[in-house]
Write a protein that binds this DNA or RNA. Structure first.
Length: 951
RNA sequence: AGGCACGUACGUCAAUGGUAGACGGCUUCCCUUACAAGGAAGAGGUUGGGGGUUCGAGUCCCUCCGUGCCUACCA
């Protein structure tokens, strides 16, 4: 191996020419074994700046090839199980920030649990996305001048499959880039044969349980997509519209004498409507039964203008007397409420609008064939001519639109398949009431949102007039008999005839999605996957599909597997744009995760997203940038460790045996390491991603880089090869290795890249459960907190050293002492233990404050011309500044500090003087305040002396 | 219309009822041999207003102001 040297770079090949990781990386000689001719130039091919792209290129393929993502990698038969099924993205979709966010959370959990020794499965897959996909392919056809009807159903569906194999599933490639550790060997697609079988099985069972029925109902119809939609696929948009007041002439017959003659008004009843064109289908007028204005008219009839139809005035509770005129026109065929009124009063249904939102023959010859909006204008025109248009007012209301194409929904009466929800709903509600499952995180407000919705649930329209999807397994005989069966053969057998026609509709996409947690694991067979991985551990998803998907999975899982599909539901926040707006295609305000990956790296993006936790976050490049800087920090810290790694290798043993013999900073970092591990475990157990990230960030940057590396630098960079140097290097490498493990679930690429370069990193570091696997950080054990290694004594001693260094630096800065200038520092500490700590660390202190000399004594023995400061525990420091110090200024500085302390002391005294506080607050709290007061007392006393010394 | 959240430093967000923090930005100094994507030291807050409960409130309750989200069959 030959090292090319340039100024500060000696390169060794770790990648071959094609950029593939060379095999020597894993099993052969240590990667970094550098012995340049000149020791001073000892640096390897680690550039100063971290290049994420390089690390992102290689590791994923290797992990995947070596089966690291599959649960089978775990050799421990008694390992606990952790499983997640991915919310299947649409086959038409490409990765957006919401995916990146959710995938990050799922991958963090999966990688973490895997490192904890769990048998881990994260199952990937895609959804066939009925309407979206059909639209996408139809659009392609349109470019060729074709419609799906030109092809016919069979050819069209073939075409969709072709599209899928050619350009569908972009997102799976993008998931590899994300580093998602999903088991691709178990990838599923909701339209594949095995899942279609499950759909038919469930449909048949639900039908036989009378939970699925076919019926004629008023439904949401999209005139553009030509299909029915469920209530959840309809979106309400506020709209600035008009409210039209229409007069319907009363047909008074015998009662004509009861009405005082003379006033025109009294010959009419006025109704208010936002949709005048539907009046052509009116079959009644409704008023509230308690409305005195109309009491005498109940039971009479009106003559419907433009049609001459005689329609009754009925009394119905639904009508709000306060609104409009208190009289409502009733169009049972074109409005869900009117439909209900019609049912209650047995009113006929006159269909005046067809599936294309055009007027029918029944609307009258003048209107037939007209578009609904043209018809509206014409109706108004006619009413005006007849003097029957009382007034038109501006009115804001919400209008139903198709979620996908934004066309205004037309409520129509139609024969569809429905799923009866009450019994299923009760299963889910019982589960929550009895076992509090699933557990929502955050519990507030989602648990309540979920149960409230279930309580008010209505039947689910499950049929769709599409071609792409699971065709409904129902067949019709010539006589119109309905046969529901798993297969056509089964249907024929049951019908006793081959002359059957299958229902042409397909099922709502969400029907197959509802089965996802068990259909993907092999149900209804009692597969080992189903036994092992169901119920899954957690579902990670956005709040927008709690109803659409989460609730339905709970219902179907309970019904068919007899258990909840997941223990926990973690609801992520939403990534908003800079201005707090939702990212959307139409607004063009989306941030493309792939561009962010390119700019800042996958790891930086991931850890930034993880830090978002469950709250909404406004997107800000700066945030990713700061984590990019963090990645660079990790890179350079490792670079330093590797630069000084000769004769040393990672050895976890050195952090747990003989620890009490080690220097303060070593005992301290070991304690910090275990506290960090503890805090990260705790945070992840409660899905507190933000907290986990903060903990890791500060441990690595503040504790490890800013302090530990600086404190151990002297030993580690010593010129001579001594056992002491080797031991220090070994500790440093080992702490780094532990830190990389802690970070791995969040930043898989950089941690793997660096781990592979660590001397001593090999199969010996793998978790027991993966002991035969090829070495990779992702199969090492996640660091556990060993309580005995948390050392509060070492932490407080170290804190004293840190405080001393900080105060000395503070003085240097405030006194404008040149950074390069070495100065003497005098320390006085009455406390013996403290004095011993300072004395034992004078070398490090001197180095970090750039002191020429440090003297530690019982009392502060400094010349008059010194800048001084007090520390905790009554310790003091002084820096002699003969000729540099301005005595007035220095006194001022000390007085300012004293003021600060005095005001704090005053507050504490006040609180401690309050008998109720002392009485009622916990003892620890009171003692804590007392201790602080004592400390402040010591400090102010010391300041007094310092001021005296200056006078 | 109801329901539910949220208002904390210039910006984005944290903080089991116990001395208000982080990151970015800003000021001053430093290219100190891991890192200028860095180091050191700073400035910046009566936690939207008002009231209450409590020894103690950013945190719990009430009210007002402001902002979001969800659900809904007011024609």
């Amino acid at each position: 191996m030959r090292f090319a040297t340039n100024r500060n770079c000696i390169s060794i090949r770790s990648y071959d020419g094609d950029g593939i990781l060379a095999p020597l990386l894993y099993n052969e000689a240590p990667l970094i074994k550098l012995k340049a001719e000149n020791e001073d130039q000892l640096i390897m091919d680690i550039p100063k700046t971290y290049d994420p792209k390089q690390a992102e290129q290689h590791h994923y393929a290797r992990w995947e090839q070596q089966g690291c993502f599959a649960p089978e990698i775990n050799q421990d038969a008694s390992a606990p199980v952790f499983s997640i099924v991915i919310p299947p993205p649409n086959v038409t979709g490409s990765l957006h920030m919401g995916h990146a966010l959710q995938h990050t959370m799922m991958d963090v959990l999966t990688r973490y649990k895997r490192m904890c020794g769990y048998r881990t499965l994260w199952l990937p897959g895609m959804d066939h996305a009925g309407i979206s996909t059909q639209l996408m392919v139809s659009r392609e056809l349109k470019k060729e001048g074709l419609t799906r009807h030109d092809l016919g159903r069979e050819k069209f569906v073939e075409r969709v499959w072709q599209w899928k194999s050619e350009s569908g599933g972009q997102i799976t490639k993008q998931m590899r880039r994300e580093g998602a550790s999903v088991d691709w060997s178990r990838e599923r697609f909701t339209m594949e044969d095995s899942l279609s079988r499950v759909v038919r099985e469930v449909f048949v069972r639900l039908y036989r349980d009378e939970l699925i029925y076919r019926g004629k109902r008023i439904v949401n119809w999209c005139p553009t997509d030509q299909t029915v939609l469920s209530d959840l696929e309809v979106q309400k948009d506020p709209q600035q519209g008009k409210l039209y007041y229409l007069r319907y002439p009363l047909e008074l017959r015998g009662r004509v004498r009861e009405i005082r003659a003379g006033k025109l008004d009294e010959h009419y009843i006025t109704v208010a409507t936002t949709r005048p064109e539907t009046m052509l289908g009116d079959t009644g007028v409704a008023v509230n039964p308690t409305d005195s204005r109309y009491l005498s008219l109940i039971g009479t009839t009106v003559e419907l203008p433009l049609t001459g139809r005689k329609i009754p005035i009925v009394a119905d509770e639904f009508v709000d007397p306060e609104f409009g005129t208190g009289a409502v026109k009733v169009t049972p065929a074109h409005d869900p409420n009117d439909y209900d009124i019609g049912v209650r009063h047995n009113l006929p249904r006159v269909v005046v609008i067809d599936q294309h939102a055009r007027m029918t023959e029944d609307a009258g010859a003048e209107f037939a064939g007209l578009d609904r909006y043209k018809a509206r204008a014409k109706v108004i025109e006619k009413f005006e001519e007849l003097g029957l248009l009382e007034k038109v007012i501006d009115y804001e209301f919400s209008i139903s639109k198709c979620e996908r194409c934004k066309t205004v929904i037309e409520p129509l009466i139609s024969t569809q398949w429905f799923c009866r929800m009450e019994p299923l709903r009760d299963l889910a509600l019982d589960l929550m009431a009895r076992e509090k499952k699933p557990r929502f995180v955050p519990e507030v407000p989602y648990e309540k949102v979920y149960t409230n919705w279930l309580e008010n649930l209505r039947d689910w329209t499950i049929s769709r007039q599409l071609w792409w999807g699971h065709q409904i397994p129902a067949w019709y005989t010539k006589d119109g008999e309905v046969i529901v069966a798993r297969t056509e053969e089964e249907a024929r057998e049951e019908a006793g005839t081959d002359d059957l026609t299958q229902d042409s509709d397909v099922l709502d996409t969400w029907f197959s999605s509802a089965l996802w947690p068990f259909s993907t694991l092999g149900w209804p067979e009692k597969t080992s996957d189903l036994k092992t991985f169901y119920p899954t551990s957690v579902l990670v998803t956005g709040r927008d599909i709690i109803f659409l998907w989460v609730s339905r999975m709970v219902m179907m899982g309970s019904k068919f597997v007899g258990r909840e599909p997941f223990a926990d539901v973690f609801i992520t926040g939403t990534i908003l744009d800079k201005h707090g707006q939702r990212m959307s295609k139409t607004k063009m305000n989306g941030v493309d995760p792939l561009e962010v990956f390119d700019k800042y790296g996958v790891d930086a993006t991931r850890i930034m997203l993880a830090s978002a936790g469950s709250t909404d976050v406004r997107w800000n490049d700066k945030q990713v940038e700061s984590y990019r800087n963090f990645a660079n920090k990790i890179w350079n810290a490792a670079r330093f460790c590797l630069l000084n790694s000769e004769d040393a290798a990672v050895d976890p043993g050195v952090l747990s045996t003989g620890v009490s013999e080690l220097a303060l900073h070593d005992r301290w970092i070991i304690s910090r390491l275990h506290k960090t591990a503890r805090d990260v475990h705790d945070a992840l157990a409660g899905y507190q991603f933000h907290e986990a990230v903060q903990t890791l960030y500060h441990f690595f940057w503040d504790d490890f880089c800013d302090w530990y590396i600086e404190l151990t630098k002297m030993d580690v960079t010593a010129d001579e090869t001594t056992t002491q140097r080797t031991a220090a290097r070994t500790r440093l490498l080992t702490v780094l290795e532990q830190a990389l493990r802690l970070l791995h679930p969040f930043m898989p690429y950089i941690t793997e890249e660096l781990w592979q370069r660590l001397p001593g990193a090999g199969e010996n570091l793998l978790h027991q459960a993966y002991k035969d696997a090829a070495p990779t950080i992702m199969l090492t054990a996640y660091p556990e907190c060993i309580a005995e290694l948390i050392n509060e004594g070492a932490e407080s001693e170290m804190q004293a050293v840190i405080d001393l260094i900080s105060r000395a630096r503070n003085i240097r800065s405030e006194m404008n002492i040149k950074p390069g200038e070495r100065i003497p520092v005098i320390v006085g500490a009455a406390d013996e233990r403290l004095r011993a700590v300072f004395a034992a660390n004078t070398d490090q202190i001197a180095r970090l404050v750039r002191a020429s000399h440090i003297s530690v004594g019982e009392r502060l023995d400094a010349p008059r011309a010194s800048a001084r400061a007090v520390l905790g525990g009554g310790a003091e420091i002084a820096i002699p500044l003969e000729g540099l110090i301005d005595f007035d200024q220095e006194r001022e500085r000390l007085r300012k500090e004293q003021d600060k302390l005095n005001s704090e002391a005053a507050k504490l005294e006040l609180q401690l003087a309050n008998p109720q506080f002392v009485e009622r607050a916990p003892v620890e709290k009171v003692n804590e305040l007392k201790e602080r007061l004592t400390d402040i007392g010591q400090r102010t006393a010391a300041l007094d002396q310092m001021l005296e010394a200056l006078s």
